[in-house]
Design a protein around this nucleic acid. Structure first.
Ligand SMILES: [Zn+2]
Ligand SMILES: [Zn+2]
Length: 840
DNA sequence: AGCACGCCGACT
DNA sequence: GTCGGCGTGCTC
């Protein structure tokens, strides 16, 4: 406010009207200016949430971005209705980050804020309709139609009606006319109200009344209660829980009423004690964040090995020169302990730290570990937690109570104002990239920008860094520290490539397994060991094919084959959820020779149960982990040894350490390597290495078996030697010659429409417009993506590939302009265009 | 994104 | 003539 010169334009006594630019959580390119009512002028601040009317019947939450004195030109500003926060919930650094995200990822700041804010902080509703209290039908000098009278009568009875309710009387179109007319006749008024979605959680507590806080009066009280044993029980329990003399502050904050369990203590005695003013009862606001948070700081020590200490020193060295440093450490080398020791120092110095992890890596064990170290100063930001809990973390960070957040992708958008360290673990994980809806941001890259805004240091950790990151480290843009040693001297498991081509020729295979794999597994199980089997396809069979005519069962709405699910005997689409009973005969030629092709986790489970009838086998994929705790249950059963063999998709590749696993099987390596994506092989190597990391923890006989029909693929040569860098170098040459990242940046333009030819033509039109501006060699001509149709929406893509140093910001502007030009053609106006910057 | 307004065909 | 479809443009 201080920068406003209030005196210049106004006579001294008059307070000027102020206006606020409000950022709304909508995909609109600009802010909206509202008038600040006089009575709210002293309460408003940049960064607080407000309720504003938007359109004719809606009210929404927005955030104050700027306060100004000049009224907007060309329209009359509406009034802000309400201020929701006393203190800002968005800080300056966040506004800067949001601006960057909107610009870089080609979306609006409103879209960024919409994703950033937990939904409990975005209140909105429709206005409601009420009779104007000053209105008297008898005295009105208007004529009311019959329908209007019906509405007025209903309002007399019901008091408050929604637009919806009035629409039910007649039809939607008429009702809005009626409301408009009644408003003009001043018969009704609009009422705007929102209810706070986020409610603080409260709890009843009692405390000993002041008058008993000296030993004498307390002794007298106890004497008096001698004849009332049940009341005395309650009092004694209280004194046992709350040492009123040695820890008077505990009495101050009180004891939760629920401590007096009704089966042990008489509820009426407690009430009597409250009535007689022995106890005082009060209601206090408690945190919801008590899941695993009751533990105050228990551990204060982080024990680092010599190797870890050396590594830490190297990171400190690296940070001197590079604010971004890559920590390259093999699975199980104890990177986490190094992160935690850095984080501890940051928190103790009074600034904030952020620890980003992929969703599945935020395990109960991880949460418990940080709780023990940091107590209540930690906020866990995770989609498994309720929205109310996320609101509390947000507020905790904004108010400075939470100094350390461990969280998923979206936690980069929390209201940090004093960050000095960010850790991004498993930085290569593609789940750091959001795809739908906008902003299509990469949390690792966004975190790097966030670190620049805060002048903070950022540590990227991975056993298999993303090639972009590794390349940046190699060319000296990032610092690089390698942690080679595997914790506890464990040896890396042997990786064996199983030649399926040969096995098939010798007829030493079942549908999905080679005999050699099955015998090895048999042996390991007999030794009392466990096995993990990886297949990145869920369901029973990926497709159902007619042997007579070659017909394949496809989804009605999408251009994909339907997956057969044995459990429900159904064909399902994994993209739109479409399902149908599995047909008995071919829909084209009516032949009954239908065969299931390929294999998903479900079939593998079935086959293995057939081969190993006495073995306890469990499957972990999206289908078996739908329920809230099922993931945890499967993990625990495997950890305890109750399950001997765990079959799963990507889910089994991350995070958890199972000590007794001696064999890991990759059923179909080819499926991982061969799909049309320039990153397919990078991903395949990462994934196979990661899955391999599950074998032979703390034991010397770990083994990984990889089944493939292409055993001569160079990937395997590097894989069996754990030569990450060698394969990287090889791939880099290919990336260079085909002009792919890290040698260029990609902007993927996706056009979506409900007609194939219009979508196709629109893409061609856009391509023709872009070619002369950006240059044909920087464009990949319009093409269908791998799945051309999803939910009956047709997709076309144009890729823009820009070499390093090519003006990025300007090109984005040119793309947006070209799209606008394309939409001047009415055929293409209804196409939806989506931009995906740095696609994963 | 959601919603109102307006122009058109079709159906009481 | 009215009803409902979608295409267009606006929301402070
Ligand atoms: Zn057929
Ligand atoms: Zn589908």
């Amino acid at each position: 406010m201080s920068q406003l010169n209030l005196q210049s334009n106004f006579p001294e006594s008059k307070q000027p009207t102020l206006f606020a630019k409000i950022l709304l959580p909508l995909p609109l390119p600009k802010t909206f200016t509202y008038r600040i009512p006089k009575n709210l002028q002293d309460l408003i601040n940049v960064g607080v949430r407000v309720i504003v009317p938007f359109g004719t019947k809606k009210i929404t939450t927005g955030v104050v971005k700027e306060i100004q004195q000049t009224p907007p030109e060309g329209y009359e500003a509406k009034y802000i209705l309400e201020i929701l926060d006393e203190f800002p919930v968005l800080c300056n650094q966040q506004f800067r980050l949001f601006e960057w995200m909107a610009q870089y990822y080609m979306c609006t700041e409103g879209e960024v804020m919409n994703i950033a804010l937990p939904s409990g902080m975005k209140l909105s509703s429709e206005s409601k309709i009420q009779l104007n209290p000053a209105f008297k039908l008898e005295q009105a000098n208007f004529i009311f139609s019959e329908l209007e009278l019906v509405v007025l009568n209903l309002l007399k009875k019901e008091n408050l009606l929604s637009y919806q309710q009035i629409a039910e009387i007649s039809n939607a179109k008429q009702s809005s006319l009626i409301i408009k007319d009644l408003l003009k006749k001043e018969a009704i008024i609009l009422i705007e109200q929102v209810q706070e979605k986020y409610k603080p959680k409260t709890e009843k507590v009692v405390r000993l009344h002041q008058q008993y806080l000296d030993k004498q009066s307390l002794a007298a009280l106890m004497d008096e209660l001698e004849k009332k044993p049940k009341q005395l029980d309650v009092l004694l329990k209280y004194l046992q829980e709350v040492p009123v003399f040695s820890e008077p502050e505990k009495n101050e904050s009180g004891l939760e009423k629920k401590v007096f369990k009704p089966e042990e203590f008489s509820a009426s005695s407690l009430s009597t004690l409250i009535k007689n003013e022995v106890f005082e009862e009060m209601e206090v606001i408690v945190s919801r964040l008590d899941y695993l948070s009751r533990g105050k700081i228990v551990d204060t020590e982080i024990q680092l090995s010599d190797a870890q200490n050396t590594c830490k020193e190297q990171i400190i060295q690296s940070f001197q020169e590079f604010p971004v440093t890559l920590l390259h450490g093999v699975t199980g080398s104890g990177k986490t302990e190094i992160y935690l020791s850095f984080i501890k120092e940051v928190i103790e110095s009074g600034s904030q730290a952020l620890f980003l992890l992929p969703e599945i890596a935020i395990t109960t064990q991880m949460i418990q570990r940080v709780r023990k170290l940091f107590g209540d100063q930690v906020g866990v930001y995770h989609s498994k937690f309720s929205d109310a809990e996320r609101v509390e973390v947000w507020q905790g960070v904004a108010e400075g109570r939470i100094n350390f957040v461990i969280g998923v992708r979206s936690s980069v958008m929390l209201p940090f104002n004093n960050l000095s360290l960010i850790v991004v673990d498993e930085e290569h994980e593609s789940s750091y990239k959001q795809y739908d809806p906008a902003p299509r941001y990469h949390a690792r890259d966004t975190a790097i920008v966030l670190s620049q805004i805060h002048q903070a240091q950022i540590l990227l950790g991975s056993a298999t860094p993303a090639y972009e990151t590794f390349h940046n480290a190699h060319k000296g843009k990032y610092g690089y520290v390698k942690l080679a040693e595997r914790y506890g001297e464990g040896k890396l498991p042997d990786i064996e490539i199983v030649d399926m081509r040969k096995a098939v020729a010798k007829k030493q295979v079942t549908d999905d397994f080679s005999y050699v794999f099955l015998t090895t597994m048999q042996e390991e199980l007999e030794k009392g060991k466990q096995a993990i089997i990886f297949q990145n396809r869920r369901g029973y069979a990926p497709y159902l094919q007619c042997e007579t005519c070659g017909w394949i069962a496809e989804c009605e709405n999408c251009s994909v084959s339907l997956t057969y699910h044995m459990h429900q005997h159904e064909l399902k689409c994994h993209y739109c959820g479409f399902r149908q009973k599995s047909p008995a005969a071919c829909l084209k030629c009516e032949s009954t020779a239908l065969k299931m092709k390929g294999f998903g986790t479900e079939k593998i489970e079935d086959d293995l149960k057939l081969h190993f009838p006495d073995t306890r086998i469990q499957r972990m994929d999206r289908d078996t982990t739908r329920k809230k705790y099922s993931y945890q249950q499967i993990i625990e059963a495997f950890e305890s040894g109750e399950t001997q063999v765990l079959i799963g998709t990507q889910m089994v590749s991350k995070g958890l350490d199972f000590e007794n696993v001696s064999l890991v099987g990759i059923v179909d390596a080819d499926r991982i390597m061969y799909y049309p994506d320039f990153r397919a092989e990078e991903r395949a190597f990462q994934l196979m290495l990661q899955v391999s990391g599950r074998a032979g923890r703390n034991n010397k006989s770990g083994k990984v078996m990889v089944q493939t029909f292409q055993k001569d693929h160079p990937l395997f040569h590097y894989l069996i030697n754990y030569n990450f860098e060698g394969f990287y170098q090889l791939q880099l040459k290919e990336r260079h010659s085909f002009f792919y990242p890290p040698f260029c940046r990609i902007i993927r333009i996706i056009l979506k429409g409900n007609q194939a030819n219009i979508t196709r033509n629109g893409a061609q039109n856009l391509y023709n417009a872009l070619s002369p501006i950006i240059g044909q060699k920087r464009l990949l001509a319009p093409h269908e993506p791998m799945i051309a149709k999803i939910r009956n929406i047709y997709h076309m893509e144009i890729w823009v590939k820009l070499e390093k140093g090519y003006p990025l910001e300007n090109t984005k502007k040119q793309i947006i302009e070209s799209v606008e030009k394309m939409k001047e053609n009415s055929h293409f106006r209804k196409l939806k265009v989506v931009y995906d910057v740095d696609p994963q």
